[in-house]
Amino acid sequence: MHDGPILQVENLRIEIPTRHRTLVAVDDVSFELARGEVLGVVGESGAGKSLTGAAIIGLLRPPGRIAGGRIWIDGKRVDNLSQAEMRKVRGRIAGAIFQDPMTSLNPLFTVGQQLVETIRTHLDMSRAEARARALSLLAEVGIPAPEQRLDQYPHQFSGGMRQRVVIALALCANPKLIIADEPTTALDVSIQAQIIALLKRLCHEHGTAVVLVTHDMGVIAETADRVAVMYTGRIAELGPVAEVVRAPRHPYTAGLMASIPAIGETRDRLYQIDGSMPRLTNIPQGCPFNPRCPAVFDRCRRERPETVDLGGHRVACWKHGEQEA
């Protein structure tokens, strides 16, 4: 048993080779996750948040590859493991939940068969014991009438119920870490709230740590302990959720927060960050946010900002770097 953080990511770099050039999709990403902690990872599409999640759990889809950095799960280095070894880590120590529940479920087997199979792969249990555990897992994730549901096929479940089954699958071996990639995006608002509440309760009860990848700041605000804001494959800002939401330090985060409409507010216009996130093929020199930044100055155009730690709140912005230097 290892006492340190459940997850450590150090200088992670993910490259996607294409015909013309190699794109750097994730660059110099570092963070740690304490046991039982929920880390939200937000960013626009293409910011590298899903790739980071996939790399941690060894599900990076080729041609994407880890080109640098190291990852430890529960003290064990995992970025250099073979597929077979990684499969053991997945499930026993770490579980995954994706946006589309059907990617995790096999349509040809009943939910019960899939749960029993997964449980018996990771835990030393008889078929009957595994079935009993499957039953209690389904009940735990809030599926009504689990005895009948156990013998049904995935297509007989609604979207929200399917996502619950996927959560049950991820929980089979009592993992210490769950990577949840947009787990609620495909669901309706009313169902979304159910799933978020379920995830929160489970983390709380089992002390499971969660990396929650989503584009929805509202979900993050209510669920996460800390937030990492990603932009063009790098972490722009990482800090406690209340600080990042209420007092963002990076101009990008500040703009992002101000551009989100809220119910009942009376603003006539929303704040807008002009332009859009650059594609990976033409990330500007210096700070990748500099062409859109309202507080840009000379240094931002020349040099890439280093990450500055402001007491547990990290920011990659020269505005803060200057003060230190």
Partner: peptide, 12 residues
């Protein structure tokens, strides 16, 4: 049920 930025850590 709408997630809200202003309700940090709120369990709805």
């Amino acid at each position: 049920t709408v997630p809200d930025l202003n309700r940090i850590g709120y369990t709805r």
